[in-house]
Amino acid sequence: MTQTANRSGDFPSHIVRKQIASILEKVHDPEIPGVSIVDLGMVLDIRPENSHWHIDLAVTYSGCPAIDVIPILAKAILAQDGFADAVVEMQIAPPWSTEWISERGNDKLLAWGIAPSNKKSAHHDFGIPKQCPQCGSTDTSLISAYGSTPCKAMYRCDVCHETFDYFKCY
């Protein structure tokens, strides 16, 4: 196999699409380093277009600073792996949702100390954390609706008394 500037010419598109998807596994949100953009459900589409590959990524929060950084990171990593002319575009529609985060992504969030989003209901529009990421207790209280980033809320565990971030339903 030869590494050319664009490997799409060497393989049928369904194989290249998989290759690109696995390359994108290496792209992480800089503020959530443990979780790839694939696990965050941000990869909307990977398709061949004329002589290059086009990748559509979903915008998470509209003001999230990562929105400017992620396409730059993605392009750099794609270039490293032989897709220098890939085009990465951020899309606001369909609107990204925390429900798109994969199970693996949610597990990684939890391991990283962030409680994944859980149970949206009429009374709890941003849901409530299933458990404290530190001790696993279900006894938690909201401290603040906004945490270290707009997508998170700040919670306190009422058993181990640690504070933790909770990924709000979006």
């Binding site: 509209s62 003001g63 603040s144």
Partner: peptide, 20 residues
Amino acid sequence: LEQDIAMTNISLDLIGQARL
């Protein structure tokens, strides 16, 4: 601190909306 962060996070959202 919590409210400082909350207000600036809302500010981020709003500027993001304006950008779009």
